[in-house]
């Protein structure tokens, strides 16, 4: 009988999960300054932008970036405690308010209150990042209202409590406008509690830099990938719903750096990923074969 098990995995409680290394992020615009300013004033932020353009990476980067200087000033020795926890919640259509706030559970014949992730972020003073907020149920948007104005409180109805947000807390949403169902649009009352930072795909050179960093490719191939990304995005609205994201370009880059032939890598990572329409696939194929040998 084994006395102890070897831990095969690492797990963290969300308040303690801190990034130990600085995530790579290449600023495209003034988003870093904007976010820093917003954070200082605790203004909630909405990120708007197409999929795979770096919204999630940006929030990771910012939580690290904002966290680090704070620790340096306060406590030199134990910096991880003062980092800003980042709680990311991917919203889906069955996500209810109590999934965010918390609920009582039965344990034996007792009941135990378990905090939801939002509550924990509020208590810990972290950044709570609600990804794709429009997907969540309507009741979720209501509970974030008092958190996002001057009150900064989270009503915990079941417990009859009002939870005051800790100093560092900030709510950040991401939101993908454009081809959304008309039924799933943010209400004005919600929208107008946030500032909106727009994200778009980076410029060719910046994107090449990102691809190079993420995939370890040389700058030349990275530029070719970025060029391809740009060309494929040109096809948007000609039957293509979304252009190829930076993420896909990076995937292609990673495949190439693993020795897959560039044309093949782009085929699987970009062409077949963005569309099922055969004639568009053919056109993209031609673009790929023009750009890569």
């Amino acid at each position: 009988m084994a006395k102890s098990t070897k831990t095969l995995y690492r797990s963290y409680i969300i308040e303690e999960y801190n990034l130990t290394e600085e995530p790579y992020y290449l600023p495209v615009n003034d988003e870093v300054e904007l976010f820093e300013a917003a954070y200082k004033q605790r203004i909630p932020v909405i990120f708007k932008g197409p999929t795979g353009c770096g919204k999630t990476r940006f929030i990771e980067y910012m939580s690290y970036k904002i966290g680090v200087p704070l620790t340096k000033v306060k406590k030199q020795d134990n910096k991880s405690q003062n980092n800003i926890p980042l709680v990311t919640i991917a919203c889906h259509e069955d996500l209810t308010a109590s999934d965010l706030v918390g609920r009582y559970l039965l344990e034996g014949d007792k009941t135990v209150w378990i905090d939801g992730p939002l509550t924990r972020a509020v208590k810990a003073g972290g950044i709570c990042y609600l990804d794709e907020i429009v997907e969540a149920r309507k009741d979720t948007t209501v509970i974030i209202h008092p958190l996002t104005d001057h009150r900064r409180i989270l009503p915990v109805e079941k417990k009859g409590e009002l939870l005051e947000a800790a100093e560092g807390f900030l709510l950040v949403l991401s939101y993908n406008p454009g081809y959304q169902s008309a039924l799933k649009d943010l209400k004005q009352s919600t929208r107008q509690r946030f500032i909106s930072v727009e994200f778009d795909y980076p410029s060719r050179d910046a994107e090449a830099e990102i691809i190079k960093h993420e995939s370890g490719l040389d700058i030349q191939t990275s530029t070719q990938l970025a060029k391809l990304g740009e060309k494929v995005r040109n096809l948007k609205e000609h039957g293509l719903q979304e252009g190829s994201s930076t993420r896909l370009l990076i995937y292609a880059g990673k495949l190439i750096s693993q020795g897959i032939k560039p044309r093949r890598a782009c085929q699987v990572a970009i062409n077949w990923a963005v569309t099922d329409d055969i004639s568009i696939q053919k056109s993209i194929s031609e673009l790929i074969s023009s750009i890569f040998e």
Binding site: E230, K231, V232, N234, L235, H238, G239, S279, I280, K282, S283, I284, E286, L287, S290
Partner: peptide, 14 residues
């Protein structure tokens, strides 16, 4: 035509 037209649009971006 269809394939090449999209191809050209992709290249030109217009």
């Amino acid at each position: 035509k269809e394939i090449m037209e999209l191809y050209c649009r992709g290249l030109a971006g217009s």
